[in-house]
Amino acid sequence: MDTEAQHTERDPSSPADPQPDPATDDGSRSVRVSGTSAGTPETPEDDEDDEGGAGRGPSWRRTGLVGAACVVFLLLLSHFVAQPFLIPSGSMEPTLQVGDRILVNKLAYRFGSEPRRGDVVVFDGTGSFVQEERAGDPVTGLVRDAAAALGLAAPDETDFVKRVVGVGGDRVVCCDAKGRLSVNGVRVREPYLTPGDRPSDVPFDIVVPPGTLWVMGDHRSQSSDSRDHLGSPGGGMVPVDKVVGRADWIVWPVARWTTVTETDAYDSVPAPPAGGHTVGPRGSGHG
């Protein structure tokens, strides 16, 4: 060991090393042995290289943690602020088309505000449009719900997107002799309807109970909405506390990247009378 270390450090072009002094030989040996084979001390970079190049780039663990943190952030954002929602049917055409991905503003009604006539809303139809909770494997359901929350999968079967036509206390009637819908006695012109569609092929005369909404699709001939649940428990009304949020933006495809246009169709509709409405002879609602 001692002989090999001395031989490695000797420069062939330099004079021979003097003979070691027995009195100091142990100290010299310790210096020579602690060095590298080239006589250069080891550096921290050498240690990192010996450990497999840990400092050369982010490890797969770091990448996985960053990815997981991004997913958690998006899920929290989706749960509390804005949720992507995939449009699965043509019931809201031409406003929303099949395959559109919208962002639902969950803060729109969070601080005391309530849906207004003309708003396009996403709501949970359990108890109004759908009577039974969806059953299935909980793990599969969790994964599916997470994918839907990120806009990567179709929404849950209990989620719907429709336009608010009547709010609590309103009397909504359809249709008059000219096929027009009226709210609180005022005829409403609906420019958002699919061209060629009538306001409704199903006559109705209802009063919306407080805390609920009467909702309809823009493609009336292809929409299953409040009209289809007149005889169901709740009479087709959607509780306000079941509203997930307001559809404010179309974010995909890029060619349709825009806001969901607000309508002035209900600007002239008055508030319902303080004493409430009476329901006409065709009424199936409450009042």
Rank of each mutant, 00 (worst) to 15 (best):
L181C: 09
D176I: 00
L77P: 02
T194R: 15
G151C: 11
W214D: 04
L75M: 12
V173C: 10
D201I: 02
D205A: 06
P20W: 15
G141M: 13
V31K: 11
L193Q: 03
A247K: 00
G276T: 08
V238W: 04
V161K: 00
F111M: 08
G27H: 03
T63V: 15
V139E: 14
P203D: 03
V238H: 07
V120M: 06
G276Q: 09
S14R: 14
G217I: 05
R163S: 06
S200K: 06
D47P: 01
D145T: 15
A274L: 11
G236M: 06
R117A: 02
G196S: 07
I87Y: 01
K106C: 11
L96N: 11
A247Q: 02
Q6R: 08
A82M: 04
R116L: 08
R134T: 10
D46T: 08
D145W: 02
D21G: 03
D205T: 04
G245C: 07
V165N: 04
G211K: 13
R282C: 02
R10N: 00
D145R: 14
S221P: 14
S223D: 00
P138G: 11
G55V: 04
G112R: 07
P210K: 12
V143R: 07
P253H: 09
Q97A: 12
R117T: 03
K242L: 01
T95A: 11
V240H: 09
L76N: 03
R29E: 14
T43D: 07
T126H: 08
L76I: 11
F80G: 11
G141H: 09
E157D: 15
G168V: 00
L142M: 13
L181N: 08
I87K: 03
L150Q: 12
F80K: 06
S37G: 02
G118Y: 07
Q131A: 14
L103Y: 01
D264C: 05
A82V: 05
P44G: 07
Q222F: 09
S14G: 06
R187W: 06
L76A: 14
V130E: 14
Q83A: 14
R134Q: 12
P88Q: 10
